[in-house]
Amino acid sequence: MGSAIICLSLIFGFVTGLCICSAVSDVEDAAETANWIHKDDGQNLQLVLPHDVSPDTDNVALAGHSKGGKVAFALALGHAHTHLKFKALIGLDPVEGSNTSNRIEPKILNYIPQDFNLAMPVALIGTGLGDDSCCGCVPPVAPWGCNHPFFFDECKPPSCYFVARDFGHLDMVDDWLVRLAGMFICKTGKGSKDDMRRACGGIFVAFLKAYMFHNADDLTAIIDSPNSVAPIKLDPVLWLQS
């Protein structure tokens, strides 16, 4: 019987998410989902998995994109109670709010280096175009001061940081309706979106292999030679181990 590593992924509507003043209910919903997974040692989750796959509730990762990235950090930081213990955290272009004076509750960023009290390894994947405005008239959806470098700056080691320099905030999304909407409010890159998705997926897998299965070969290869390993340009690439 196969054993499945669990990754609780949080994806929330980026348009509505950045137009409201609170993500508290989203954090509470995420905690409720985590507790549902944890109940009876994963038996709830087992009911919706293939019969030959068994969930491993001792190896659970938390991940989120955009507002969902902020929610993932909030849950990991204890803004809602969960019995499930997380072993790793991944933020995919997380966003704190529409600007530094209009940050969504619960406020996560304190703008103090390595201030996050996280007892787990963290990976941050950011986009180079996320903090650019669209057509010069629509504000950026991942604005400077509320975006990925500020999340990474508050992470303690071990932590990894990758920036997809030539891609935008929604360029990894494999949903034509979201991409269509994003064309009017997000700056998008000219590179292959399939390559962007492959790069993000590869980083996810390499990071989780390193910190859940003690095999850092793939992560080391990406860190040491990003231009020859990754299908897109990653710059900067950082790995703080201690």
Rank of each mutant, 00 (worst) to 15 (best):
L109E: 07
F116G: 13
S133K: 10
W144K: 14
N102L: 07
A142W: 02
Q114K: 15
A142K: 09
Y111Q: 09
P139N: 04
E105K: 14
F116A: 12
L129M: 07
S101I: 11
T100M: 12
P106T: 00
A123E: 11
F151E: 12
C146D: 02
M120G: 13
S101L: 13
M120K: 09
S133C: 11
G130E: 05
S133I: 03
G97V: 03
M120V: 09
N110T: 15
A142M: 04
P106F: 01
F150H: 15
F150V: 08
V95H: 01
V95I: 11
V122Y: 03
N117F: 04
C137L: 13
L109Y: 09
Q114D: 11
K107N: 12
P139E: 04
P106V: 00
P140F: 00
Q114P: 08
P121R: 02
P140L: 01
S98G: 08
Q114V: 06
V138S: 07
P121E: 07
V122T: 15
G130S: 08
P140D: 03
G97R: 02
C137S: 13
A119K: 14
T100V: 13
A119C: 12
P113E: 03
I112E: 14
S98D: 11
H148T: 15
C146W: 00
P106E: 00
D115R: 13
C146F: 01
D115C: 10
C137Q: 09
G128I: 00
P143L: 00
T100Q: 12
E96C: 07
S98V: 12
I112V: 15
P113W: 00
G136S: 08
D132R: 13
Q114I: 04
S101N: 14
A142N: 09
D115W: 05
F151I: 05
G97E: 04
I108C: 05
A142Q: 02
T127W: 04
V141N: 10
D131G: 09
L129Q: 08
Q114S: 12
Q114M: 10
L129K: 06
H148F: 08
V95Q: 06
R103Y: 06
L109I: 13
C137G: 06
P149G: 05
E96L: 09
D131N: 14
C137V: 15
G126Y: 05
P113A: 01
G128L: 01
P143T: 00
N110C: 09
P121I: 03
N110H: 12
P113I: 01
N99P: 08
P149W: 06
H148R: 04
N102Q: 09
H148M: 10
K107W: 06
P113N: 03
R103F: 04
S133D: 10
A119Q: 15
N102T: 10
G97C: 01
N99T: 13
N110W: 02
V95E: 05
N117Q: 14
K107R: 15
A142L: 05
N147W: 07
N117P: 05
P143M: 01
I112M: 08
W144H: 12
P139D: 06
V141Y: 10
N147D: 15
P113K: 02
G136A: 07
V138D: 02
G130W: 06
H148L: 08
G128W: 00
I125L: 14
D131P: 03
P113R: 00
S133L: 02
P143C: 01
L118D: 02
G130Q: 08
P143D: 00
